[in-house]
Design a protein around this nucleic acid. Sequence first.
DNA 1: GCCAACGTTGGC
DNA 2: GCCAACGTTGGC
Length: 151
Amino acid sequence: MRFWLMKSEPSEMSIDGLAARPEQTVAWDGVRNYQARNFMRNQMQVGDLVLFYHSSCPEPGIAGVAEVSRLACPDETQFDPVSKYFDPKATRENPRWFNVEIRFVRKTRLLSLKELRSYPELAGMRILQKGNRLSITPVDPAEWKFIEAKL
DNA sequence: GCCAACGTTGGC
DNA sequence: GCCAACGTTGGC
């Protein structure tokens, strides 16, 4: 089992929004970055745990825990000309983008970015590196354990 | 709203 | 294959 951190703008999908979804699950579609796609398509397994991170908002930070509830499948939005995620270069025969589905596990206190930065134990986290923009990143088991104890 | 950092595109 | 230009991300 692996651990991940997934960023979401709360205005798009917050931890409360996830909890309110049917089955408390959501297709993690719209990812248009190859590294993030590869994590989903090649590595994510059902049951993997996810730190749900709120980004681009007044208080960025970890807001909850989710789990991978479905293996990666071709992202339907790439085929939809009306979608903002439409990709004219993708075909059904040769899909370019994939997404997993995640399910709500629990809401936590907000562990802010500022607080995350304050722990030397977490200094190696990808999300804390300068210029990091990757929306899906692996989380080291030791880092997961440390963070979970703080939530 | 600003802007640094990064990823992608496309001309050559 | 290089690299300049462009678009996006995301904290502040």
